[in-house]
């Protein structure tokens, strides 16, 4: 089964909120079928640090599941916004 991995940049509400705090919350609310395969952080500016997530979803679900992932993450109080930076296919 083919999967698509999206690199999602998650921006915090303010510089006090660190990526790890957001990641722990995201793990609890990720929609079924979506899975975090990698994570990291990216310093932006003026103390803001983005959480970077690689999220794998089944290819046949289309973008609906990615939308659901973004919506779920954006519903968190500590999150300002999410943006899918890139998508790639990862298997046959």
């Amino acid at each position: 089964m083919a999967k698509v991995v999206a690199k999602i940049k998650v921006m915090p509400k303010d510089p006090e909120i660190k990526p790890n705090m957001i990641k722990k919350q995201v793990e609890k609310i990720l929609p079924e079928g979506a899975e975090i395969t990698a994570s990291g952080e990216q310093p932006i500016a003026f103390g803001l640090v983005a959480l970077m997530l690689n999220v794998a979803v089944p290819e046949e679900s289309g973008t609906k599941i990615l939308d659901a992932v973004q919506e779920a993450i954006e519903s968190l109080e500590d999150v300002e916004s999410t943006r899918v930076e890139a998508v790639t296919r990862i298997s046959l």
């Binding site: 083919a2 698509v4 999206a6 690199k7 290819e59 046949e60 289309g62 973008t63 609906k64 990615l66 943006r83 899918v84 930076e85 890139a86 998508v87 790639t88 296919r89 990862i90």
Partner: peptide, 20 residues
């Protein structure tokens, strides 16, 4: 580095609005 274009056309949206 390689970005392998998904076969499902729905994802074209993410390629169009992506930043990479």
């Amino acid at each position: 580095t390689i970005i392998d274009c998904p076969g499902h056309r729905d994802f074209v949206k993410n390629m169009i609005t992506g930043t990479s």
